[in-house]
């Protein structure tokens, strides 16, 4: 069966739409992004503050 035989309603869903349709992947991204960029980066900065002279 060639791709032309696929009826339009079964059209391939684009990657971005599939991503946006998956709440659990979005949940992962929405927790991972600030966890890395804000929390983990912040913790690393605070623990690396040197002792006073």
């Amino acid at each position: 069966m060639s791709p032309h035989d696929v009826p339009p309603e079964n059209e391939e869903i684009p990657f971005m739409q599939r991503l946006l349709d998956n709440p659990f992947i979005l949940l992962f991204l929405g927790v991972a992004s600030p966890a890395v960029l804000y929390l983990i980066w912040g913790i690393m900065e605070i623990v690396s503050i040197p002792l006073g002279k």
Partner: peptide
């Protein structure tokens, strides 16, 4: 419509 699923099934290509 915002309160029902998009009418186009493949809305990403609109």
């Amino acid at each position: 419509m915002s309160i029902s699923p998009p009418s186009d099934k493949v809305w990403w290509k609109e």
